[in-house]
Write a protein that binds this DNA or RNA. Structure first.
Lengths: 337, 337
DNA sequence: TTGTAAGCGTTATCAT
DNA sequence: ATGATAACGCTTACAA
């Protein structure tokens, strides 16, 4: 096995020489600037082909002061947060828009202290042209960091505390209200909820929507158990509810993962859904369709969140001042109610 | 709202001046090279603090010819592949190791033709120090691309055709054999399978394991339906099996997603699991625990795959010649058998 | 140990 | 339209 000497790749200078023009002209032709004669342009094109020239993005980045990449920062204690299909969908949306813009995506899991430091450096060093931040908890230091770093930043979901100028969110309260109204319209009166993390805006907004709907209907929250958006926590929360409020006749879970967990707990406990207890989730993941019984849920356009965050970021990078965006939700009725 | 003039960040020259030393000395102190006097080192450290200096990674990359980032390339037709929690887990493993090495992760979804072109450029332009490739199908052009680009590359799972020098894989055939043996040991004799994509090595290896186990036991494959690793396809495949071979008494599904789909189809069809039909999956995702009934499955160490791929890549980048790695699987018995 | 000077591969400025 | 020349911000011989 020979150690093939990595042959150097041609530089723009070599292209220029080959084409018999100045490097400046070559550069201009490369970036098809207007001020190059047809002849030179063609000569350069040809030289590029012949030499198999590929511009060096690093050099370009240094000269233009543009990284050619944006960051997607996912906060959270557990690196396994990514196991939630939710993020996969968001990323798919992000990637689609970035592809058109020909920008690269650097993915950061700001999970440990070490991770936070790295994100900080990423921002301050301007290693990316902009960032998107997701799933920030309570007063996550990343919020301040991003705002102060003087780098275009858009947030996925409003942070709990403090105002951020640019974000894409979903109308969580309204979605939760709709879900709860639906349960009420079914004649359920002892409606409990499984909340998400309450140190996030999503978690609180969905609980608020639930409460508001009940209040408006002259009912009151029947029982509440806290989850953390994972299936596992949904099981535990449902078990807790069954123990504390065995007479409940409906549950609104703050996301599908937890709702699926709740279904599982109910099944184990021998309660039938929806006959005994109706269940509604939130998200509209594939899991909700597949669940047994199929889950009624509040669908949010997850890929769109990714797409819109990215569009907003691109606008920001382009020097515009986009407005925050709030995407609508849709109630999807299935068999669990 | 004023347009705050983005104040320039200090350069190493400024640090040097402030510290009263040459730029060379400053650079040496910064990268704590051995040949700097204690005094100068301290002076530089101080200047760095005072000025809030942060090195420019792009300039550094240009000078050192190292990008400071590696790519994770996920192939596949549907951008939503990422919705599969499998990848999330892999990424978590990757991120953990990269964090220690202080490298960034560039995530590429090579889903469209456009995406493939971008990956090609990424490789040829050496915008990353190395790449990891996952879920390549058949004779995906990316395989050749990666091998020819003369960039360190490790594959997650062997490509179906052709040899690649560096890869991390799981012993799929063995795992499938174990799963099937388990079904046989339970006294099942009419054992069907739901295969994964058959233009991937995983898909074929798992089917091979299934067939081998049956043959060794003097049985023969009872029926087979093709899936594509998604839950949805699992449902369809199971329905097809029920129609074509209604007397089957067990199913080995090539992954958990499809197994969960199969459970759903069986439930709809009024078949009870495991009494009528036993079901085994493959992966060991959370979904398998949550399923109803809890799924017997072949667990593979998903995060480890990500970690080991990354370690292998780092070794490769460091100039070593690591050996391919095959990780073991474990059968986990639960309620579906 | 220290510093000078020459890269790294582009783009941008500014005369011509 | 064209082409020197100077950035861009850092590392790294090489010499002292």
């Amino acid at each position: 096995m020979t150690d093939e000497p990595t042959r150097r790749r041609p530089t723009l200078d070599e292209v220029a020489e080959r084409a018999g023009v100045s490097r400046t002209a070559a550069s201009r032709a490369l970036n098809n600037a207007p001020n190059v004669s047809r002849g030179k342009r063609d000569a350069v094109q040809r030289a590029i082909k012949e030499l198999g020239y590929i511009p060096n993005p690093t050099a370009r980045a240094l000269a233009t002061q543009q990284a050619g990449a944006v960051g997607l920062i996912i906060s959270g204690e557990d690196p396994a947060v990514l196991a939630d299909p939710f993020y996969g969908q968001v990323i798919a949306g992000v990637a689609a828009v970035l592809e058109e813009a020909d920008l690269h995506l650097v993915l950061c899991l700001a999970t440990s202290t070490r991770g936070q430091v790295r994100v900080k450096q990423l921002l301050q060093a301007r290693a990316v042209d902009g960032v998107m931040l997701m799933s920030l908890r309570g007063d996550d230091p990343l919020t301040r960091l991003a705002l102060e770093a003087d780098v275009p930043a858009v947030f996925g979901g409003k942070p709990l505390h403090g105002q951020v100028p640019y974000y894409v969110d979903v109308d969580n309260a309204s979605g939760a209200r709709e879900a709860t109204d639906h349960l009420i319209s079914l004649g359920r009166t002892r409606i409990a909820t499984i909340t998400g993390l309450l140190d996030t805006d999503v978690g609180r907004a969905r609980r608020r929507g639930y409460t508001e709907a009940l209040t408006l209907a002259g009912l009151s929250p029947h029982a509440e158990a806290a989850g953390d958006f994972t299936e596992r926590s949904g099981i535990a929360a449902m078990e807790s509810l069954l123990a504390r409020a065995p007479d409940l006749d409906a549950v609104f879970a703050a996301n599908d993962n937890m709702a699926v967990g709740a279904l599982r707990a109910l099944h184990r406990a021998g309660r039938s859904v929806p006959a005994d207890i109706a269940v509604v989730g939130f998200d509209g993941l594939t899991a909700s369709e597949i669940a047994e019984p199929a889950l009624t849920t509040v669908r949010q356009p997850i890929q769109s969140i990714g797409r819109e965050m990215t569009r907003m970021l691109l606008a920001l990078i382009a020097g515009e001042k986009p407005s925050p965006l709030i995407l609508p939700t849709t109630l999807i009725r299935r068999d669990s109610t």
